[in-house]
């Protein structure tokens, strides 16, 4: 839920409340990662590195459901709906445009919740490897998760042979989103 403020508050205050939204969302990704079979058998160092490089991408997948590409609106969990134009004032215009485009593509695949969860697990373990020590262990985990995702998707929709590859094609999109936007600035007031 994100209490993006009514017009009465300054954009600085709006931005601070928006920034606060990320903290619980990041913590949920950490808990999600720990529930991925095999993730906690990686070294602690590698778990932290994967989370640092992959969490933004997992958040982008999670936030997709908030975006309505047809109406160009974002509805936060507290029910507040904002048009793209009103959110542009927060200075996240380019990220929002990219998010609408990404959520349209991912949304068109109509994934079930468990398929989406498995996809997010693949997203996390497919994150940048530059800081990883035991690369082979991460590669093995990624391979197992991709195999599980493929068998779940093909067993559910055997007639759609392109669905799985379309889904994997979202991974480079996410990496681009990450490279372009994870350096966006957040602001926190320190009282």
């Amino acid at each position: 839920s994100c209490p993006v403020a009514p017009a009465s508050r300054s954009s600085q205050e709006v931005w601070e409340s928006f920034s606060q939204c990320f903290t619980p969302a990041v913590k949920e990704v950490v808990e999600f990662a720990k529930s991925i079979p095999g993730f906690q058998s990686l070294s602690q160092h590698d778990q932290v590195m994967l989370l640092k490089s992959g969490t933004f991408q997992v958040l982008m997948v999670r936030f997709c459901s908030l975006f309505d590409p047809k109406e160009r609106t974002v509805t936060f969990l507290n029910g507040q709906t904002y048009s793209l134009a009103s959110l542009r004032a927060l200075g996240m215009g380019s990220l929002l445009d990219a998010m609408f485009e990404f959520s349209e593509k991912l949304g068109s695949l109509c994934l079930e919740p468990d398929e989406m969860a498995l996809f997010m697990a693949v997203v996390l373990v497919s994150a940048d490897r530059s800081g990883i020590v035991e690369v082979a262990a991460v590669e093995k985990l990624q391979e197992n998760l991709i195999k599980a995702l493929r068998s779940l998707i093909t067993s559910r929709r055997p007639e759609d042979s392109t669905l799985f590859s379309k889904l994997l094609l979202r991974l480079p999109d996410l990496r681009t989103l990450n490279n372009h936007h994870s350096d966006k600035l957040l602001a926190f007031r320190i009282d």
Partner: peptide
């Protein structure tokens, strides 16, 4: 006067992850 701390999204994410793992050690 109010002071503000500005950090990138990536740094904010890293900070929370480091804190979480440090707490659970």
């Amino acid at each position: 006067t109010k002071t503000h701390r500005v950090m990138t999204l990536a740094d904010h994410i890293s900070h929370i992850i480091t804190q979480d793992f440090a707490r659970n050690q």
